[in-house]
């Protein structure tokens, strides 16, 4: 019995978590075996079914900004463990380990760039860094980027991916919800657009603050977007949840999102939004542009 359970635990799980060198992955949606390189070359979309996998921050920044235009702003402020928070492991040690792995101080990258020629500031959250949780540094980077975008007359595009506030930083992490909200006023005062892209997953205090306060709020296909996570709700109400509950498409039907935009079209659509909101004529050719990614030659995918 015990042995059987042990074998069951050994079955391959999704994705490459914990094994960056993993060559083969299984699509969580269509279960096809995917060659890792194919996935990376395809904007982290499943080559078989277009399932939107989570995308690393640097790839996201590269996808959203025109080649050679991105100038990084973030990275000059460092998190501190002011509560000396210890659970099963000290927060300071967790933080140090993930900083080393990610090669950045916290769960966000911000900077300036051009998006099909439009001047923008972008902020991209990193779910792989402590669940993209928002502590003082993430909040401060988001706030500074909004304020600098306003100063430099740039539209602000934020891609969220977060489990919510970072509980290891206590009530000050909660206060980042208010901080990021008031920082957006700098853009409002100058009538500069703030557009938020909710990617998988966007939950808790991030959803309940700046992420849903964009002038336009869009979702990526299939993204989990919620205040309380499905498990918490299930424990509270003790019922099964409806199919597709809290996913982008569901929220679009409920009237909570402006649109759900496939990743290949995201950059062009965001640039169109910025142009239209700022009253500039739309360049038809560019508006129709998709991020140029050829569907890769599949390396034996789906054969297995």
């Amino acid at each position: 019995m015990a042995l059987e359970r042990w074998f069951r635990r050994q079955r391959p799980t999704r994705g490459d978590e914990g094994s960056p060198a993993g060559l083969w992955l299984k699509c969580p949606s269509c279960h096809a075996q995917i060659y890792r390189k194919d996935l990376v070359a395809n904007l982290y979309l499943c080559p078989e079914c277009d399932h939107h996998e989570r995308m690393p921050v640097d790839a996201r920044v590269a996808m959203l900004t025109d080649d050679g235009t991105f100038e990084r702003w973030s990275g000059h402020i460092l998190p501190v463990d002011s509560l000396e928070f210890v659970d099963t492991e000290p927060y300071a040690e967790r933080l140090a380990a993930v900083q080393k792995k990610a090669e950045r101080p916290d769960a966000i990258v911000t900077g300036a760039g051009e998006m099909l020629g439009e001047r923008v500031a972008v902020a991209v959250m990193d779910f792989s860094f402590l669940g993209g949780s928002m502590g003082s540094v993430v909040g401060e980077e988001l706030a500074r980027a909004a304020e600098r975008a306003a100063e430099e007359e740039r539209a602000y595009v934020v891609v969220s991916a977060s489990g919510g506030a970072r509980m290891q930083e206590g009530a000050l992490s909660l206060m980042q919800m208010a901080k990021t909200t008031v920082a957006l006023e700098a853009l409002t005062e100058r009538r500069l657009p703030c557009i938020t892209v909710l990617s998988d997953p966007t939950t808790g205090g991030v959803t309940a603050s700046f992420a849903t306060l964009g002038d336009l709020v869009v979702g990526e296909p299939g993204a989990l977007i919620c205040f309380a996570g499905p498990r918490v709700i299930q424990q509270t109400i003790k019922q099964d949840l409806p199919e597709g509950f809290q996913r982008s498409e569901f929220l679009l039907r409920k009237g909570m999102l402006d649109d759900v935009i496939p990743r290949r079209e995201l950059k062009a659509r965001l640039a169109t939004y910025v142009r239209l909101l700022r009253g500039a004529p739309v360049d038809r050719e560019r508006a129709a542009e998709r991020v140029k990614v050829e569907k890769p030659e599949l390396s034996r995918a789906a054969v297995l």
């Binding site: 460092l78 003082s136 540094v137």
Partner: peptide, 10 residues
């Protein structure tokens, strides 16, 4: 609310 938070400048 803008000033709430603790971090260090590199």
């Amino acid at each position: 609310f803008r000033k709430l938070g603790r971090f260090t400048e590199a």
